[in-house]
């Protein structure tokens, strides 16, 4: 029997365009589209991609419940045995959409689902317990490898074959523990690991500690009329010409810009260099991402005492988590030294 597979992709991989078309609502096509061709070849007749469901990344991100419901109806109409989504690599909105639609299809349609994302994609943290996420490289350069590993896992799931550990099968663990008899007792394995650790050898833990990066909320502002507020953004807003050459994606630095003389951001003094959203609105009026104009007005009205003289800006698309954390630490330190009392940070 040939299994029926539905493939979920975004507007970009469907060839409909880039950020300019990221608002397209879901649509459904028979057969393969874009990377579906390679998927189909790898399935080698054991399964067939009978349909493709496409949705714009911004549409999905901004209307998650609606987009999910619409896509589920389209997927359901194909009567599939499985849903494959992506790969989404390190694309934030696409990764979240892939994870969300897989989680929903698994729950509502009762079919196995597979997607593939880079480990730092926010979709991983959100959905790894609800679907099989094959770990990929951070960009489409890893397409061939990602598809091939997705297919291997997908066929095993379709044939209901017994799976090994997440690490062995190449997907991100789902937090599921299975009991089995090991030839060595826990005490022996523990001592083995300890000895390896002492010798500086590689060892694999059997109990990974979860990483909860949450912090206690800072104390609130007591009297708004006395505070200095700073603006920050990861929306790629920079002085026109991008003097610091901040990258359009995968940023490795942030910029600090003096806005003490500015009352309004315009298409002439500032621009967006962000590579992960449609920049038409932000280039026309950068205030829609970095709200300088109204902040100045409210400063004048005395709502708060002062807008900090500097804004901090970077690009938050494909940016390594470690880099983003480093930016935050550096910015936090400077703001503290400057006596800033609160921050408004906008992201796209």
């Amino acid at each position: 029997m040939t299994y029926r597979v539905v493939h979920y992709i975004n507007q970009f991989y469907a060839g409909m365009g880039g950020e300019d078309t990221a608002h397209v609502p879901p649509s459904s096509r028979d057969g393969i589209v874009g990377p579906g061709l390679q998927l189909q070849n790898l399935l080698q007749g054991e399964a067939e991609v009978i349909g493709t469901v496409i949705c714009g990344d911004s549409y999905y991100g901004e209307n998650m419940e609606k987009a999910q419901a619409e896509c589920i109806e389209m997927i359901k109409a194909f009567k599939p045995d499985m849903l494959i989504a992506g790969p989404g690599f390190n694309a934030g909105r696409y990764g979240v959409a892939c994870g969300d639609i897989c989680a929903a299809a698994g729950e509502m349609l009762g079919i196995p689902t597979v997607t593939a994302l880079y480990g730092e994609n926010p979709g991983v943290e959100m959905y790894h317990k609800k679907t099989y996420i094959v770990e990929t490289s951070d960009s489409a350069r890893g397409m061939r490898d990602a598809l091939s590993r997705m297919v291997t896992l997908a066929l095993k799931l379709l044939k209901k074959e017994k799976l090994g550990t997440a690490r062995f099968e190449g997907y991100i663990h789902r937090g599921i523990r299975k009991s089995f008899f090991h030839e060595k007792s826990g005490a022996e394995r523990g001592v083995d690991m300890l000895l390896k650790k002492i010798r500086g050898e590689a060892f694999e833990t059997e109990l990974e500690m979860p990483v909860f990066k949450k912090i206690d909320p800072a104390a609130p502002i007591a009297d708004l009329s006395k505070v200095t507020i700073a603006l920050c953004t990861s929306g790629g807003i920079v002085p026109f010409g991008n003097p610091d050459h901040i990258r359009v994606s995968s940023a490795e630095k942030f910029g600090k810009y003096n806005i003490s003389e500015l009352k309004d951001l315009t298409s002439e003094n500032y621009e967006s260099i962000h590579g992960g959203y449609d920049r038409v609105y932000a280039n026309d009026n950068p205030d829609v991402v970095l709200p300088l104009d109204i902040m100045r007005e409210m400063e004048k009205e005395g709502v708060f005492a002062k807008l900090h003289d500097f804004v901090y800006c970077t690009t938050g698309t494909g940016t390594a988590v470690a880099n983003a954390e480093g930016f935050g630490q550096a910015i936090g330190k400077e703001l503290k030294e400057a006596g800033v009392d609160a921050v408004i940070l906008t992201s796209t």
Binding site: G61, E62, M64, G92, R93, V96, P122, M126, K213, K214, I215, P217, A218, A219, P220, I221, C232, S234, T314, G316, A324, E325, G326, F327, G328, Q329, I331, G332, K333, L335, K336, V340, D341, A342, V343, I344, L345, T346, S347, T348
Partner: peptide
């Protein structure tokens, strides 16, 4: 970035963005 600024500076940081689950 938001979390680290708040942690480092010890001041409230408000994030305005569209995809709430990511925040």
């Amino acid at each position: 970035m938001v979390r680290e600024i708040e942690k480092e500076a010890g001041i409230p940081v408000v994030q305005i963005a569209t995809i709430v689950p990511i925040m």
